[in-house]
Amino acid sequence: MSKGRGLIVTTSPHVRDEDSVTKIMYNVVLALLPALILAVRTFGLHALWLIITCSVTALASEALAQKLRGVKVTINDGSALVTALLLAMSLPPNLPLWVAVVGTVVAIILGKQIFGGLGYNYFNPALIGRAFLLASFPVLMTTWEKPFVDAQAQATPLGLMKMEGVATPYSDLFMGSVSGSLGEVSALAILIGGLYLLYKGYIDWRIPLSYLGTVVIFMTILGEDPIFHLLAGSLLAGAFFYATDMVTTPITKKGRWIFGIGAGILLVLIRIFGGYPEGVLYSIILMNMFVPIIDKYTVPTVFGEVAK
């Protein structure tokens, strides 16, 4: 990933060779494995089917779309797989498979391919898929299951907090015995993956720091439990995996701070004042919309250039 200076004609990823995109993508897959394995262990075989369905659908739709567009088929660069896994992680464990197929097709085709493929989309494709499903099938997308027990409904920790004021113990949130989407289950699993990506330098630390930091600060100011909000829902996943998508987030360093802070503020607003119990999805895609503007106006001045 190159830093934002000089002649940028396209947005990131700036590939000198295809290997670097592929390398990043497969490392992201690796980082997601703890959470995915834990999800299957917690919710059973159906979760595995969801993951497989999303993956296969993603690869197939991307291949088809690229064929139709008349461009080279690049499904082995791993980006479609990452989108599929990120989408799968955001789904409720008992979602009918056909819904997952619809969401994945929307994510790959509408969220990525019609923009011209990797690097040109504005919105995180997995999140577009999720937003579409949430708008289309609100009931199916918000029916949650009790962990480890088959077919018993249970509200998510955030839902319990918002609707009934019931708190969930930190250990449950951290280790993974709460209900939620596949990726919301265990904070620990997400953290392991996220810290790995940070350590390897595949994601920029500014975004998780600004996103999480802003949430902690504002939640504390508003009198809410910041640790709870940090651990519950998909905030950690959002901070390490969704908000760090290099295509849909700012190129400039200052821009990344703005992105993280903006997303944090939006998240707090939605979780506390909005109609939904969880707001990670919306906080990120709303900020995605601002990225072109952010990039445009936070370009550092080149030495010697007269300030406008």
């Binding site: 579409f132 708008a135 099938f137």
Partner: peptide
């Protein structure tokens, strides 16, 4: 058939 609610929402209109 499960209705796709988005079709009758503004987002669906645009899409």
């Amino acid at each position: 058939f499960t209705p796709w609610i988005i079709a009758v929402l503004p987002a669906g209109a645009f899409l």
